[in-house]
Amino acid sequence: MGLIEDLCSIYGPAGREHVVRERIEKELKGICPEIHTDRLGNLIAHQPPASGKKNAEKIMLCAHMDEIGLIVTYIDKKGYLRFTSVGGVFPELALNQRVVFENGTVGIIGIEPKKDESKSKAGPKLDKMYIDIGAQDQKSAEKIVRLGDVAAFSQHAVWISKTRLSTKALDDRIGCYCLIETAKRAKKANNDIYFVFSVQEEVGLRGARTSAFAVAPQYALAVDVTDTGDTPEAHRMEVSLGKGVAIKVKDSAFLTNPHVKDKLVEYAKSMHIPYQLEVLEHGTTDAAVIQLVKEGVMSGVLSIPTRYIHSTNELCDLNDVEGAISLLEHVCKTGLS
């Protein structure tokens, strides 16, 4: 299994990122000289500039480790688990999916049958759903799963074409992959680079805030997924799968620093990296809080165009990913000033 498939398959809902963190740490050992985990669980890997380099820019690259998940709120007498969401779970996409707990327990999401047919227009709701872990009763269920345990969706990665990968948790393990690859390729760059793998993005951009406070960078780039507008009857959006890395202009909580945006466009052009400009109407990412830390951080976002976000079959194109890595590598070498 390749690194992307491996990263995406790992269990890591918001607040429970430790397995992802250990995997990334293993990958970066020997590449980044300083690696540490902070109090909230962010992994911060530091690559100082090549020795003797003056005027190095302090740049933070950030991708979040967490994925959406479910948390157990009650175990009923028959051993079914009631739950609620951790992060933005679409009820209609959760239904009948397979989930897995940290200890490996697997469950299937079921739903109560509709009693009142007149109300059948409303979509399914999480509070009508349950997780079936094959337990016979409450007691046997409580031996393997406890109240407050967190489950992640379960799905194998599949390449549906030569370049297109479908799996869960591309949001944002694909960003983590971009950072890892950049770290490997941009060793001994001219700048002072912090690779931050953040926690709890899906529940409110939490880890990015504290890690940015600690790093206090001059520039920051978040790497995350973004929607596309290229599927049948899609919401109008000028981003397509496979047409290049997306350079964000704005989303619902973030305006890209114009200097950073212009630099990224300039680099993409000069390196002949295909790119698209992105305006995302709904949703945001870690950069929205990073830019507001301390005296402010000039920030931007590179997005990987992704279809079916927050489903178990997110879909991205490797060419876009490669473009993002090349651009990030160039930023590490050249800086953003």
Partner: peptide, 8 residues
């Protein structure tokens, strides 16, 4: 928990 570098 989000103050400064983070608080357990």
């Amino acid at each position: 928990h989000l103050v400064g570098e983070g608080v357990r």
